[in-house]
């Protein structure tokens, strides 16, 4: 995997996100205090924000290149995104949420089939329920499954465990490890927690006020 984040510049209210890195690890953690620009960086990669300058390239595919005016729309980026608030569609059932981005042609790859993903995350029995009646951990797994069922080439996880208590976090982390090990998808994982970063990430970028201030091995999380 090669994710190029070159010459990224996105002005925010108090500072600008300015990043220039090339990532090769399967799971890269983005670690930093609240308001450091981590979510904004994920939004840029997903195409949800327009940078003032950026070249974002995933393997051979250029997703954003402000120099040439290229901006692949989010729906065509094949970038899965699990935001911090999960954004499960409240008016749809679990099944409808899961199938929202599911591409029938991805049935060719059994890894991304409905059966496999729901088995892996143990949510098959939830399919008929309303998302508003799920527990925090169930919501978490449904949001992760929904992103996976769209067959992404890159997965963005924005503090996926931030709203869970410690006991629930300990239950969910093994699911994230399963996803990491089975799908071998490149992931960007935003977190505040050192333990999560050490468990899941191969490499960690430390962000402070929009800039990458350190880049360390996952096991040596700051």
């Amino acid at each position: 995997m090669r994710l190029l984040l070159k010459n990224i510049s996105l002005p925010l209210a108090e500072f600008a996100v300015e990043v220039d890195v090339e990532l090769h690890s399967q799971v890269t953690g983005i670690f930093g205090p609240s308001g450091a620009g981590k979510t904004s960086l994920l939004d840029l990669i997903a195409g949800l924000r327009r940078p003032s300058s950026a070249k974002i390239q995933l393997n051979d595919t250029v997703l954003t290149d402000t120099a040439s005016g290229l901006a692949v729309p989010p729906r065509l980026r094949e970038v899965g995104y699990v935001p911090q608030d999960l954004a499960l569609f409240p008016h749809l059932s679990v099944r409808q949420n899961l199938l929202y981005g599911h591409k029938p042609e991805s049935g060719r790859n059994p890894l991304f089939s409905f059966e496999h993903v729901t088995d892996l995350l143990e949510i098959k029995s939830l399919a008929g329920r309303s998302v508003t009646h799920l527990s925090g951990g169930e919501k978490q797994r449904v949001a992760l499954a929904r992103a996976l069922l769209a067959s992404p080439r890159l997965l963005l996880l924005d503090e996926p465990l931030a709203n869970l208590d410690t006991a629930l976090k300990d239950k969910i982390i093994p699911y994230l490890c399963r996803v990491r090990d089975e799908f071998r998808l490149p992931m960007l994982y935003v977190t505040h927690e050192r333990e999560e970063a050490q468990t899941l990430c191969d490499e960690i970028l430390v962000m402070t006020r929009g800039r990458v201030t350190a880049r360390v091995d996952g096991r040596a999380a700051p």
């Binding site: 939004d43 997903a46 195409g47 949800l48 729309p73 989010p74 729906r75 065509l76 980026r77 970038v79 899965g80 995104y81 935001p83 608030d85 954004a87 569609f89 929202y100 981005g101 591409k103 929904r146 992103a147 769209a150």
Partner: peptide
Amino acid sequence: NQRFEQIARTLGAG
């Protein structure tokens, strides 16, 4: 909440 719309777009919706 526009986040719902944004996430729908990342899931391939026009």
